[in-house]
Amino acid sequence: MLLNAELYVRDLPGQLVGSLEPISMVDGNIIGVVHDREKIVNQRIMVSVTFEVKNSRKLEELKAIWKSKDIIISKMGSVYETVTREFMMVGRFNATYIENLIDEASRIVKLESTDIGYSSKNLNSDKRTAMITAEVRCREDLDKLDRFFSDACEKDDMLYIRGL
């Protein structure tokens, strides 16, 4: 499990190390640490740590150790790796069409984020271009999204250009 925790530790020497040691004690792996000395609340400083532990049992062990050491856990969340790909469509459509397409796509895969850019109106052509940047959790989802957009473009006579 890859996680990120925001901890508050007493502003005393040795507290930073003291907050990280428990991760090693549960056989975890520290990925990154930010020690923010300017963020002091109730004489405690904030430590943001990204780490890996084997399973939720190890995570519960870790939380218990932190609690016993008087370390306050203010935030804890999972960190997911995501993959992003661009999809371009060229054809006769309006923004509503693309938004509906994204809605439909979000029922097929979990979209972490999407960004849509449109070309401005062009007097020389009645075709528009939409560039969709989609962020999903795995490559399989990208392939599903690719198939969905590809089928939609074929059905609605649009040119489909996807990223690598």
Binding site: V90, G117, S119, N122, R128, Y160, I161
Partner: peptide, 22 residues
């Protein structure tokens, strides 16, 4: 097979705006 005849200057410009080429 999809050819390149449908690629518009708009599409090229959109790609360039994202630091890409077609």
């Amino acid at each position: 097979i999809t050819g390149i005849t449908g690629i518009t200057p708009d599409a090229i410009a959109q790609a360039a705006a994202h630091n890409m080429v077609i």
